[in-house]
Simulated assay, not measured.
Amino acid sequence: MIAASVPFLVRAAEEEFDPDTVTPGIWGFVLTFVVMVVVVLLVLDMVRRIRRVNYRAEVREQLEAEQREREVQVLEGDYAAPDAPDVTPGPASPSGDGDDDGDAAAASDDEDLPPAR
Rank of each mutant, 00 (worst) to 15 (best):
58 E>R: 14
64 E>T: 07
46 M>G: 13
69 E>M: 09
90 G>D: 01
88 T>H: 10
46 M>H: 09
12 A>R: 03
55 Y>H: 11
101 D>H: 06
90 G>Q: 02
80 A>D: 06
53 V>N: 15
58 E>I: 11
95 S>L: 09
116 A>L: 13
51 R>Q: 14
76 E>M: 08
43 V>G: 08
99 D>Y: 03
37 V>H: 00
63 L>R: 06
113 L>C: 03
14 E>M: 02
35 V>E: 12
30 V>I: 14
2 I>K: 11
103 D>S: 11
90 G>K: 02
93 S>A: 13
59 V>G: 05
60 R>M: 05
117 R>Q: 11
103 D>V: 12
23 T>M: 14
68 R>V: 06
30 V>Q: 09
6 V>H: 08
44 L>I: 11
87 V>C: 03
68 R>M: 08
32 T>E: 09
38 V>A: 08
21 T>W: 00
57 A>D: 10
38 V>S: 04
45 D>S: 14
95 S>N: 13
22 V>S: 03
88 T>P: 05
99 D>N: 08
52 R>Y: 05
18 D>M: 15
105 A>T: 04
44 L>R: 07
50 I>Q: 12
50 I>N: 11
42 L>H: 01
92 A>E: 10
19 P>A: 00
59 V>R: 13
33 F>S: 12
92 A>R: 07
29 F>R: 10
99 D>R: 08
20 D>V: 03
92 A>I: 05
21 T>Q: 07
33 F>V: 07
36 M>V: 11
31 L>T: 05
30 V>F: 05
60 R>E: 09
15 E>L: 04
53 V>W: 15
110 D>Y: 00
114 P>H: 04
112 D>F: 07
93 S>K: 10
35 V>I: 10
50 I>H: 09
6 V>S: 09
8 F>N: 12
61 E>F: 11
2 I>H: 10
